[in-house]
């Protein structure tokens, strides 16, 4: 570790040498998901406030977590999902928010506030929410599809695309057995193993980044994908239909939070409040049609956007959804379980 720190500090030292003369006083370092905050939103914020924003991306919660836990990076704003916030709060990695500076938080629907992973939103504000559901190409799949069991049946062998995410796949199997999605115990994993053993050989494509590609190209005709990806497919072609699995689904809430090590807390809070503005939030929804938790922004959206079943599940459906809890070291085990079954 020492060598690593030495290298890092040398690199940083050089970086400082380079920038010291021209450094503007107002900075904001954002560490966020790739393809989630539109560049144009960041530009608008810079233009309005004069804050120089630099953005770094990650492709998974764990990538961000490992960098943060190792003490690397000088970030002012991060974009973790709910179960990661839970872990970060528990290990005291986050800076408490000053709600006086977050006047626009009132725009968020109450059902997305004060969640168990962050009571009173002490450390985080919701950015976008969403779920995982089924997309069917009705030109190619004629049978009625209502559930995960309808997706993973032998007739669909070689036609299925799913998220390349072990926790997700295990979640669907747990739901199909009526088990809670956070009950990732050895006993339950043993119980769902035979189910997964039947499901996994049927799957053609694993893709978390852009599962819509395989469906658009015709290489897959049915899939289990993120709500936002489903919404884009529904907008593109009427042949795609969105199905909320009858066994249940989970709700994810991607949020914004400030790490304790942040140097520009004020700018980070200003950015949060900016994102919570209705007209800004609406623009984000246009590019990434997830479940927008911002009620004031929804008032500005078209009926077509609001009617998209993949973006906006009904309140009844949302009420039934469960939320991921952090499973810590079990992650490695489910990764092994899914890999083992894939390699069969």
């Amino acid at each position: 570790m020492k060598t690593k720190k030495l290298v890092l500090s040398t690199v940083t030292a050089f970086a400082f040498l380079g920038f010291a003369s021209a450094a503007p006083t107002k900075n904001l370092n954002i560490y966020c998901w790739s393809e989630y905050i539109p560049q144009n939103i960041i530009d608008q914020f810079s233009k309005e406030t004069g804050v120089k924003v630099s953005v770094e991306n990650y492709a998974s919660n764990e990538e961000m977590l490992s960098k943060l836990a190792a003490g690397g990076g000088d970030y002012d704003l991060i974009q973790p999902s709910e179960y990661v916030i839970e872990a970060l709060v528990k290990d005291k990695f986050l800076h408490p928010l000053d709600h006086a500076k977050l006047s626009n938080l009132k725009n968020i629907a109450p059902q997305f506030l004060n969640m168990p992973f962050d009571p009173d939103n002490k450390f985080s504000i919701p950015y976008m929410a969403g779920t995982v559901g089924i997309v069917v190409n009705t030109d190619l799949v004629k049978d009625e599809v209502r559930s995960f069991a309808d997706v993973f049946k032998p007739e669909n062998k070689g036609k299925i695309v799913v998220l390349d995410d072990a926790r997700e796949i295990v979640t669907w199997a747990l739901l199909s057995q009526g088990l809670g999605i956070n009950q990732v115990t050895d006993k339950n994993l043993k119980q769902i193993k035979p189910i997964l053993q039947q499901w996994i050989p049927l799957i053609k494509v694993y893709d978390s980044d852009s599962p819509k590609t395989a469906l658009l190209n015709g290489d897959a005709s049915i899939g289990v994908v993120w709500g936002g990806e489903g919404a884009i497919l529904l907008n593109k072609n009427k042949k795609f239909r969105w199905v909320m699995p009858s066994e249940g689904a989970h709700l994810f809430i991607d949020s914004l939070a400030i790490p304790k090590t942040a140097k520009n807390v004020d700018n980070a809070e200003a950015f949060m409040n900016f994102i919570l503005r209705p007209e800004i939030s609406k623009q984000i929804s246009e590019e990434f049609p997830y479940l927008n938790p911002n009620l004031a922004a929804r008032k500005l959206m078209t009926q077509k956007q609001l009617d998209n079943a993949a973006s906006f599940p009904s309140d009844d459906e949302i009420k039934k959804m469960q939320i991921f809890k952090d499973i810590g070291t079990k992650g490695s085990d489910i990764e092994e379980l899914i890999t083992t079954l894939k390699a069969q």
Partner: peptide
């Protein structure tokens, strides 16, 4: 399509989502 796991992918996943 990821249905034939390779050793590189497996290592990558243990480092990221496996947190191991």
């Amino acid at each position: 399509g990821g249905s034939n796991p390779t050793i590189g992918e497996v290592i990558f996943k243990q480092f990221t989502s496996g947190r191991n």
